[in-house]
Design a binder for these strands. Structure first.
Lengths: 210, 210
DNA sequence: GACTGTGAAGCCATTCACAGCT
DNA sequence: AGCTGTGAATGGCTTCACAGTC
């Protein structure tokens, strides 16, 4: 690995390239150019090359990139290829949907714990997972060496649950609660507020109306 | 409204400020400074002021911003305040979770149609919505003047469904399928791939390990 | 001829620092 | 004294354009 400061936007795109390459590979495509990738994912060819160049020289001048080879590299860069155990806190609609979400499994994420504090939910089955009480969280995290947690709970309790996760050893949190979560520098937090995404749409719809 | 080109990041933050102000208002706070907002949402005070300044002068020097007033302005800028009818295509786990998601209702989004092509799902009830066949989509969009559609379907059919939505009059799409959707310039598309978000986490976890 | 890899240029967003108001 | 609003400075990402390679 070369440089130190890689733009976050590059990582996001790399993840998108990676999936695109997966599809290309499935279709039997052997070689692909930066232009073809660019067209497939909606960015410029130069952007694709720049992004990949952060991590090495994967292509052949005059030819392009070998799909299988580049796919392998992108997966490795993203830390994929193995299995990442993940826990989900919140067994409401969103939480249970995430547990069953195929996209996670396809990319190597396996949900190994689903927790809630609601007694009416504890013990229920979601797929082949049983909803557990929060007191079981530490144990599950330790046993499976879980580093990634997903929060699918109301805003009010989001910070508390994040703290509890972090205490138990979680190093990265994907937060769906509509509330910004704070934690120390060494914990990676990503806030994905679904309403915010819709509100970008309404903002732009508003501009069109003028 | 002043300038023309507003950074997208500004809109994202504006939406976050807006929700933060909502919470502050509920707690009875009358006046708030850029520093307090900044701390609450994890950005710099200068950033808050710059963002707001794109849209007008909402504060009072030496004092700060009136919470209710600023909240009202942010909602208006984002195109909120009324009701936005929204349809969801895909009545799988994610689709049904989105239909029931409270966060949408709280910000003025109301799901008025849920569609699927799976005969075993059509007719089922999700909350007080009935899953409809795709052939009913045009009618629902027209009747409710729907401009926003959400895609919660497999990657394979995502582009087709997007095209069908656009033909029926949809102007903005929130796509959860792990596939980049293409459409003409005047259609606003936002791709929210849940795995991509997790993969940013794994990338950063990878860096830590070194 | 085709396509990658990359320094340089251009562009855009964020931060700084301070004038202006209360 | 406190805090906003903003031009200027900085920093960072993207695009350009071309040398290098097959």
């Amino acid at each position: 690995m070369k440089a130190f400061k890689i733009p976050e936007a590059t990582i996001v795109r790399l993840s998108v390239y990676s999936r695109f390459l997966e599809q290309a590979d499935k279709r039997g495509i052997i070689t692909i150019s930066s232009g073809e990738i660019a067209e497939g994912v909606g960015v410029s060819p130069a952007q694709v090359r720049k992004d990949l160049a952060y991590f090495g020289e994967f292509g052949t001048r005059g030819v392009g990139y070998n799909v299988k080879d580049l796919l392998h590299h992108t997966l490795k860069i993203l830390g994929l290829g193995g299995e990442w155990p993940v826990i989900v806190v919140g067994a409401g609609n969103l939480g249970t949907a995430l547990v069953s979400y195929r996209g996670f499994r396809e990319r190597g994420f396996s949900i190994c714990g689903l927790f809630d504090n609601d007694l009416t939910k504890i013990g229920k089955k979601v797929g082949d997972l049983e909803v557990l009480g929060l007191e079981k969280m530490d144990e599950v995290i330790a046993q499976n060496n879980v580093k990634i947690g997903i929060l699918a709970i109301p805003a009010k309790v989001a910070q508390d649950m994040a703290d509890q996760m972090i205490n138990a050893g979680i190093k990265a949190i994907l937060n769906f609660a509509p509330k910004v979560i704070n934690a120390s520098e060494d914990i990676e937090i990503r806030n994905t507020d679904l309403s915010v995404t819709l509100e970008i749409l309404t903002f732009n719809l508003g501009l069109q109306r003028q």
